[in-house]
Design a protein around this nucleic acid. Structure first.
Lengths: 221, 221
DNA sequence: CGGGATCCCTTAGGATACTG
DNA sequence: CAGTATCCTAAGGGATCCCG
């Protein structure tokens, strides 16, 4: 056991010893969206072996990051207050990883919780200041409602009536969020399919949800 | 090989596939201080197996995070511009991990590079605004010079003349940085040993270098 | 059906030795 | 100095099974 420690007295090392194991931060990512049952977590992380999920949940509890909350029937896992402090870490990782995202792999999936955190990552409160409205986004079979209220963002699953704009998009939506494809071009080239509302609102969307594309990785030949 | 992927199209997953393996972020942490030779990295990570260090360095190069730079004699590893973008991640991890740090383990070590990043993490530009001066800190056998210049911090190895304050401290220095022990108490109880300069300058130090102690983890019984 | 535990096998990672 | 080579352990992956 002591063999698998990093053996340094350092905050980064302490953090990695708590949440540095494989899958741990992805469990945290999903729990940042809300409390989840075991089966929810399993569904949100289709490739996690069930024994690993069980092991991680125990480790995260022992670390004071996650706690079990008994429910009327069943139970949920929730982040502790300390665990919620990982939001900065997860957002920073998402922001950095975004710049290395290429095309999705053949069997890559998109989950509601990962998309929710992605939109939280891309959200720019300053750009949303003074604006109130709702977007409904379809990506794959994930449908999310993004409720923007003057610098605050709430993401919920499923559609909502009365959205300023409802649209469907594929993975190429990242080009819009990166600012590499203009909203107009996105609509014209079919990257974005407007289902309802005013297509012009996509400009507002791109202002509010934006991630830096640079510096992107340059891989050696 | 595809078996060890997370299988999600998501920024966090992309990031973890690039720097989520064991030891990877600690290599990055040390490289954030400056370019390092293979043997420097090995010295800074005493418990890393040499084959793992070699493997990680190759992976980090392939990911566009690290590059080899040939030198007059020998070579160094340096972060790419993209790799430097991980500073946010490492600082966020350090900030979060700090709150879970207890007493150091029996064979925990402290390295110059990890300490350097720790002081960078704790540095508060706003608190340093308008102030120019130098601290020399001894922790274990690590000696660092912290040069504060009106919101900018430079950390260098070894001592410097003309410091506003030179002091030695043990791991309990974290209590001062957390604000749980006042500078005065720290001097009185021997947590901090003033070697040179005006002990009153420790107050300034504690203002400039500060990390939140809460919320700290509460571990279940 | 939610919430795991168990089994087996593969491979990453740890320890140590050795080389261009 | 900058890594390979080797051997071994333990963590992770995959499937199945179990229990309230």
């Amino acid at each position: 056991m002591a063999a698998r420690t990093y053996g340094q007295y350092c905050g980064v090392v302490t953090a990695l010893e708590l949440v540095g194991e494989r899958w741990a931060l992805l469990i945290v990512r999903d729990l940042l969206v809300g409390p989840r049952r075991y089966s929810d977590l399993k569904a949100g992380l289709p490739r996690i072996p069930t024994n690993i999920l069980a092991t991680r949940l125990k480790e995260l509890q022992a670390a004071g990051v996650v706690r079990r909350v008994p429910l009327a029937h069943g139970l949920v896992y929730d982040l502790t207050e300390y665990g919620r402090g990982l939001e900065d870490v997860v957002l920073a990782l998402g922001r950095w990883g975004f710049r290395a995202m290429g095309e999705p792999g053949a069997d890559d999936v998109v989950t509601p919780d990962s998309m929710t955190m992605a939109f939280r990552t891309a959200f720019r409160p300053a750009a949303a200041a003074g604006w109130v409205g709702t977007f409904v986004v379809h990506v794959g079979d994930v449908v999310l409602t993004l409720t923007v209220d003057d610098g605050d963002l709430t993401v919920t699953r499923g559609p909502t009536d009365g959205a300023a704009l409802t649209f469907a998009a594929g993975p190429a939506i990242r080009e819009v969020i990166a600012g590499r494809v203009s909203p107009d071009d996105a609509v014209r080239t079919g990257v974005v399919h407007v289902l309802d509302g005013d297509p012009a609102a996509l400009t507002r969307f791109a202002e509010i949800f934006h991630l830096e594309a640079e510096p992107a990785p340059v891989v050696p030949v």
